[in-house]
């Protein structure tokens, strides 16, 4: 009984210590981001890898999400003879919720996993040790630029997801289901306020931080072997998904 309780205690201490290490990793990456010299070239490079390289998958998923919302929204609203509110329903759903969350999922799958695998491979092949041995702080060189890039690229991707999603809904609603184009846009214009856009963008900034933080941490601390890299990649994706949904709940409840 005592040993069982001891194991539970040890597990709890390990988990809390692990969370503490993750938090300190984030704090040190943020503090180092403000230390000179600024890594502008690396930040721009990672904005490209997180943003530009994820653009096609985000645009595609945004378009199909919007089209599905067009069909589902039309089906639901027709029951109340409110088909003209399709544009409004789609825009609010995308701007406040689906845009930030789904684009964050896409970026996690597309770029976050690659980030964890890349840093994990760098750990396994002693490239991170090589940076330490050259007196270069690997957190400043590898992690801080990725986090800044995530904070910049994620809201931009979300905005693109939202615009393309609304277009997808328009194609289905107006083009296929004969909703009036005027009512589609006027409903949207009447119901969407700045706070809706602001809350979605705030969420996407938080998700950008979560994805880059978790994926960099897991990759950076991967076991130096092939299974270690694959495990770090899997854990980074799963943990990012979970944290995105948990934070989405809290942010929604705060900003409703």
């Amino acid at each position: 009984m005592v040993s069982f309780l001891g194991r539970i205690g040890r597990f709890a201490i390990d988990q809390i210590a692990g969370m503490g290490r993750m938090f300190l990793f984030l704090v040190s990456a943020i503090l180092l981001a403000f230390r000179r010299p600024a890594k502008l070239r690396l930040i721009v490079y990672h904005i490209k890898t997180i943003g530009v390289d994820s653009l096609s998958v985000v645009a595609l998923s945004g378009f199909f999400t919007g089209m599905v919302m067009g069909f589902q929204g039309y089906y639901s609203l027709r029951k109340f003879n409110a088909e003209s509110w399709l544009g409004s329903a789609t825009a609010l759903g995308l701007l406040r919720e689906l845009g930030p969350v789904l684009s964050a999922f896409m970026v996690t799958g597309r770029t976050g996993s690659a980030m964890a695998a890349e840093l994990g491979t760098m750990r396994a092949t002693e490239q991170i040790d090589a940076l330490y041995s050259m007196a270069i702080n690997p957190i400043k060189y590898l992690v801080s630029p990725r986090i800044i890039a995530g904070l910049i690229a994620m809201p931009l991707l979300t905005a693109i997801f939202n615009v393309i999603g609304i277009f997808g809904s328009y194609v289905v609603g107006v083009g296929m289901l004969s909703v009036s184009s005027g009512s589609f846009f006027s409903g949207m214009e009447n119901s969407v306020v700045f706070h809706d856009v602001y809350s979605g963008i705030t969420k996407s900034v938080c998700f950008g931080l979560i994805i880059t933080w978790i994926c960099c941490y897991k990759g950076f601390h991967a076991s130096p072997m092939a299974t270690g890299v694959s495990q770090a990649t899997t854990e980074s994706v799963v943990l990012s998904f979970v944290l995105i949904l948990v934070w989405d709940y809290f942010l929604t409840s705060i900003m409703l």
Binding site: T125, E126, Q127, D129, A130, Y132, S133, M134, A135
Partner: peptide
């Protein structure tokens, strides 16, 4: 560490 140069087993380029 700045006093050191290191050649790693796999070169670590």
């Amino acid at each position: 560490r700045a006093k050191f140069g290191v050649l790693f087993q796999g070169a670590a380029l």
